[in-house]
Design a protein around this nucleic acid. Structure first.
Lengths: 154, 154
DNA sequence: GGGGTATTGGTTACATGTCAACAAGAGGGC
DNA sequence: GCCCTCTTGTTGACATGTAACCAATACCCC
């Protein structure tokens, strides 16, 4: 059996740094979002995806695919958000089985109120700390890594 | 109220790329680890932390602090790993309340068997896709971001 | 030593995710 | 139209995380 190719110092620093950043940065930004807007990270993601269509509505499965969530996860989360008045379910005209998830007035107000603070939080803890060049490299790194992974849509 | 400073294209690309990479890369590496070694990501982290001491043992609270886990999370996870023979609890000599988490023979064998495949997986999906310069930048970015966040140990 | 306080590990109630099974409906071949 | 199969969304059983609380014990000041 070949000796494993262990990580060298620079590689280890990048990998462990990424893991720790992932843990702490996301926790911080989630905390900010919850404190300032009363929305969880998943709440924000759902609202954000819904506002990205003109109709502010989306079939459950399509939305789950786009968000890379399981259908059951989304279904359960939508139920919770429905109780809080952020979204509603409507019967789908063209498919009797289907539900369409629709953004409510309250949901729209919620994300419009949350967005500025959220961007500010992302800037404060992440973007504004980096140089243009670092941001450029980061974007490229993410694209490279994602291009290499199997496409989860398929 | 000031207009929020929305993200420009490069910034948006970096932020969304990071978020999506976080989602997919970690899922892929976790899947590899589980398939090849039967260990979950948290399992590996716990075993990894335990092997990093000469005695292969650690007080529960110290370990939780180091891993940035809550005590209850670690306590519950240790219980599950104990049932599988990977670790044991021993009474602490110097503190009657305390439990020490100790790596077992089986736990040591498990992580020694898992490590080579895990490194290979990290290389395949991440490190080996990047240039030396990108790895350098990534390490620096992580350090910068982490240095700016409040230290969770305190 | 004795008593108040802080620390420690664990437990209970609850939130939220997964997986598997399911009912209802869509859709194709005949 | 009728069967067979696939898709869609929901749900129950379960896994695993968090938060609040508790009992036991260590620690400190006197």
């Amino acid at each position: 059996m070949d000796e494993p190719r262990w990580l060298d110092d620079a590689e280890f620093r990048a990998w462990i740094g990424y893991r720790r950043m992932r843990l702490l940065l996301d926790a911080q930004i989630s905390r900010d979002l919850m404190r300032e807007s009363g929305l969880s990270d998943p709440d924000y993601d759902v609202l954000s995806a819904l506002t990205s269509t003109k109709e502010h509505r989306w079939r459950l499965t399509k939305l789950a695919d786009r968000m890379l969530w399981s259908k059951s996860r989304l279904s359960r989360h939508i139920s919770r958000m429905e109780q809080r008045g952020l979204v509603t379910r409507e019967e789908c005209e063209s498919d009797g089985r289907g539900a369409e998830i629709v953004l409510t007035e309250g949901g729209l107000r919620a994300i419009e109120a949350a967005a500025p603070d959220h961007v500010e939080s992302v800037r404060r803890h992440f973007i504004d700390l980096l140089t243009e060049e670092q941001i450029e490299v980061l974007g490229t790194v993410a694209e490279t890594v994602l291009a290499h992974l199997p496409d989860p849509q398929e």
